[in-house]
Design a protein around this nucleic acid. Structure first.
Length: 872
DNA sequence: AACTTCTTACTTTTT
DNA sequence: GTAAGAAGTT
């Protein structure tokens, strides 16, 4: 792939000739205006240039500023030339921002800092230069998760395993985890070998082998391969150690073992490594990040300068206090005390709702109120200033639904990524086969899309043919079609596809080739003259008074065919004369019938898919060729389609790291959802602490107003479930929290106001009787917070609700649940009256008088005698 | 081979 | 409640 040559030569990294270079500037002592705006801690972090530096930067303490100033300072003082700095980030966005800001400090753009990027992007660059050392060619392809899983599925089936019992996804997860730990199959421990029905190791090895055959690697390999290379080739490593004079790492708390090893190898020599991170914001443990990396930095690099950035420039004191109070419950922290010079500000606001829908409704209204500036004490906020940060993406739906109905503009960030969409992946698979015909995974994906009559049988035949002949799938298909192994539709369909692929490839490799162009031109003029003859004939017929439409149908048809042939050839010429691959992409999508397939599809989302395809082609315009584009897409999976217009942002907490908003809503603070049950099940205490850090990240995103909410009932998997408020709510400091009262029919609900906390007022309101009844009936026995609640109930008697607890923390108590007994008469708002047949967990089997037998969650029915209280 | 209906597992989080 | 996959039908 040609995309790699441009940055090949380290040694020859001459400064750009057309403007004064940074390194030239760096030679002389330059003014350092960027140092002026730094506080003492930041300044220390910038000026401690040599040796290991650990910058512990709490949320909102100007970490990026310090980091970018440091780069600028290194350049400005002549310590390093732009290409001698290795600066690693986790996201493309962070890399972009860093580049921009360094440029701003320096007063010019810094193209020379070519080793500034994500771990993955930098490793690709390195690996392309040394691919042969791990048995790859430098034009290897990078598989995405989808390809990875299909490949693993094949291997699992080939091993004679049931791919239902042993899902490829799970194996992919295991392999990913191993790669994150820099474990090659040979290095797997005994426990890991036994994984996946004792075949984990074997399958992993087979997978790696297959990747090499395909000249491909997955995401994890990018780092793993580089670590392997550096470990096995000390000379090469030394070279890189000399090249990278200064290393900077952003979000160090998120590094996994492989990344850590890679960094350590590179930093070993001069130890000029500066790691920036915040152990309290480590939220990627699930994908292999090791908080331990940051915790033991001082051990790894003895004599390291440790700088703490603790002055927060983002949030009000109340918000900071809330965040600090929550995170304080974690153990094993490096410890930081955030403070701010600000004085005033709104307290963190807390509110409980009846269910998820009401929560969405309330948040919608609140956002509108903020927007129009009608909230007491609060200023007016643009919609762009407001964000809803959820724990899991499925929470977004309730908000989207609500905002659609009230017409509140919103933008969802981090939804299904553009390049992960079906139609985009299909189109890309076509491109991939054209560029590299041996890309079996891509060929397999498109061989029957659109339908070409290739089913299971034909596919197996093709695979067997390919294997016995030792050729790629595409060639296997060619042979199978020629030898008559394929029949009927499959045969013609495959033959046509192969011919088209060959043609597209021919075009692709001959763009700008004048000979080919003149060949096509000649063909066009030949066809044109034929068309001329036919048209003359038709004209003659017409002049003779014949009914052309009826009598000369054949001639007319011929004319039409000629015209379309000419059009096709003209498009080829247009492509061959152009300077990128946009037209080719159009030709491929058009001739393959892929576009037509969606045009004929009557699904309501097909127009959207066609739109996406158009955008894909448009995006190609910015690239020299398809190859470069595919490389870009493999690494840049973010969808930063900047929509314009004022909109509320909806995103996950993970997605929000590094961002800030004046107004933040944090909904769904309920046990099981946040902290996520899965997190706790899989990682126990550690999982819980990571969830807590997520809570900390969430709160610290807020500049002025932070609103936390929870719902008593929520639909999970389409089933209603009663929810308990999150334990994190208990950890909020009461003095810094305002409890708001939910509006609507149910009166106080969880949230009766002010000093009394939730209790008396709400219960006394009468309106909330039904609400309470429902909440009480929730099956708390099975819920994670039950034990906790039970202890509290014993302590505090039978009073329900939230009230101020000792030690200044919020406490939420619940009365022991009213339990139904078999035989109870009950009432349900939709099904009417019935009788309890069976009790199972939180579900009741009920025989309804008019609707028959149903199974429902207990919180949905009330004892029959109380039914009159239900305000529906 | 393609289309239909039915079952099932699924909800974290992403380079 | 959905989306993907299996099983069953044309």
């Amino acid at each position: 792939m040609s995309s790699f040559s441009e940055d090949d030569a380290f040694e020859a990294a001459a400064p750009p000739a057309n403007r004064p270079s940074l390194s030239q500037m760096a030679m002389g002592a330059r003014p350092t205006p960027y140092l002026e705006g730094l506080n003492p801690a930041q300044r220390e972090a910038v000026e401690a240039m040599d040796g290991p530096v650990l910058m512990l930067a709490g949320a909102g303490t100007g970490k990026t500023k310090a980091l970018t100033c440091r780069i600028a300072h290194l350049l400005n003082t002549g310590r390093a030339r732009p290409n001698e700095i290795l600066a690693v980030t986790f996201t493309n966005k962070a890399a972009r921002e860093m580049k921009d800001r360094v440029g701003a400090h320096m007063g010019q753009s810094v193209d020379g800092v070519r080793w500034l990027g994500t771990f993955h992007a930098i490793c690709v660059k390195q690996l392309r230069r040394h691919a042969e050392l791990v048995g790859l060619k430098s034009n290897f392809t990078i598989l995405d998760t989808d390809d990875q899983i299909r490949l693993l599925k094949q291997l699992i089936r080939a091993a004679g395993m049931d791919d239902k019992r042993w899902p490829a996804r799970q194996l992919a997860g295991l392999i990913d985890g191993w790669k994150n730990k820099a474990l090659t199959p040979a290095k797997l421990g005994a426990a890991d070998e036994a994984a996946f029905d004792d075949r984990g190791k074997a399958l992993y090895a087979q997978y790696q082998h297959r990747l090499k055959e395909l000249n491909a690697c997955d995401f994890g390999d990018l780092l793993l391969h580089m670590v392997t290379i550096f470990q096995n080739h000390p000379d090469l490593l030394e070279q890189y150690q000399r090249w990278y004079k200064y290393i900077l790492v952003d979000e160090y708390q998120d590094t996994n073992v492989a990344q850590y090893m890679w960094l350590r190898l590179l930093a070993q020599g001069h130890r000029n490594i500066c790691c920036v991170g915040d152990d309290d914001q480590s939220i990627y443990g699930w994908r292999g990040a090791e908080v331990g990396n940051i915790l033991r930095f001082e051990k790894d690099f003895p004599g390291a300068t440790v700088v703490r950035l603790e002055q927060n420039y983002r949030s009000t004191p109340h918000i900071l206090a809330a965040a600090s109070s929550v995170i304080a419950a974690n153990s094993g922290r490096l410890g930081k005390d955030l403070w701010t010079a600000e004085q005033d500000g709104e307290k963190v606001r807390l509110i409980g709702h009846w269910d998820g829908e009401e929560e969405a409704r309330w948040v919608g209204e609140e956002i509108e109120a903020m927007h129009s500036g009608t909230r007491a004490r609060l200023r007016k906020f643009s919609l762009d200033d407001q964000a809803i940060l959820v724990r899991a993406s499925h929470q977004m739906r309730a908000f989207e639904d609500r905002f659609l109905t009230i017409g509140l503009p919103y933008r969802v960030i981090g939804g299904p990524r553009f390049y992960e969409r079906l139609e985009i992946r299909d189109a890309m698979a076509y491109f991939r086969v054209v560029i590299s015909p041996e890309d079996d995974l891509a060929f397999e994906r498109i061989i029957n899309v659109p339908k070409r009559g290739v089913g299971d049988k034909a596919m197996t035949d093709i695979q067997v043919t390919a294997r016995t002949n030792g050729v790629s799938l595409k060639e296997g298909a060619r042979i199978a079609a020629q030898d008559g192994l394929l029949k009927g539709k499959a045969k013609s369909g495959v033959a046509q596809l192969i011919a088209q692929l060959d043609l597209w490839r021919y075009l692709y490799s001959n763009r700008g080739n004048e000979d080919v162009i003149s060949d096509y031109d000649a063909e066009i003029s030949e066809l044109a003259s034929k068309l001329g003859v036919v048209e003359a004939e038709l004209a003659l017929m017409t002049s003779k008074g014949m009914n052309v439409k009826e009598d000369c149908a054949e001639l007319l048809l011929l004319a039409e065919q000629l015209k379309s042939q000419i059009k096709v050839l003209q498009s080829y010429v247009e492509y061959l004369r152009s300077d990128n691959d946009v037209v080719l992409a159009e030709i491929i999508l058009d001739e393959s019938g892929y576009t037509t397939m969606w045009q004929n599809d009557k699904n309501p989302d097909s127009p959207g898919r066609l739109e996406n395809l158009k955008e894909l082609v448009k995006a190609l315009d910015a690239f020299d060729n398809l190859g470069g584009f595919l490389e870009h897409v493999a690494l840049i999976m973010d969808n930063s389609n900047e929509e314009h217009g004022e909109k509320v942002t909806i995103m996950t907490l993970h997605g929000a790291k590094g961002l800030e908003f004046p107004v933040v809503f944090l909904p769904g603070w309920e046990e099981g959802l946040f902290p996520s049950q899965r997190s706790m099940d899989e990682s126990g205490q550690q999982g819980l602490e990571e969830e807590r850090r997520l809570a900390y990240v969430g709160i610290t995103r807020a500049e002025e107003v932070c609103t936390i909410s929870f719902a008593g009932n929520r639909r999970v998997y389409g089933q209603w479930q009663s929810q308990l408020p999150s334990r994190f709510i208990d950890e909020l400091p009461q003095d810094h929290v305002d409890i708001l009262t939910p509006p609507g029919l149910y009166g106080g609900g969880y949230g009766a106001a002010q000093s009394g906390g939730f209790s008396s007022e709400a219960s006394g309101a009468g309106m909330s009787a039904a609400f309470e009844t429902r909440v009480e009936k929730a099956d708390v026995y099975n819920s994670p917070g039950w034990k906790r609640l039970q202890q509290r109930s014993q302590r505090s008697g039978a009073a329900t609700n939230v009230r101020s607890g000792k030690g200044g923390h919020m406490t939420i108590d619940a009365k022991a649940a009213l339990v139904f007994t078999v035989g109870d008469r009950v009432f349900h708002q939709k099904f009417g009256y019935g009788q309890v047949l069976e009790i199972e967990g939180d579900k009741l089997a009920i025989d309804f008088d008019h609707s028959g037998e149903k199974k429902l969650v207990a919180s949905f029915v009330t004892p029959a005698e109380k039914a009159g209280d239900v305000p529906f």
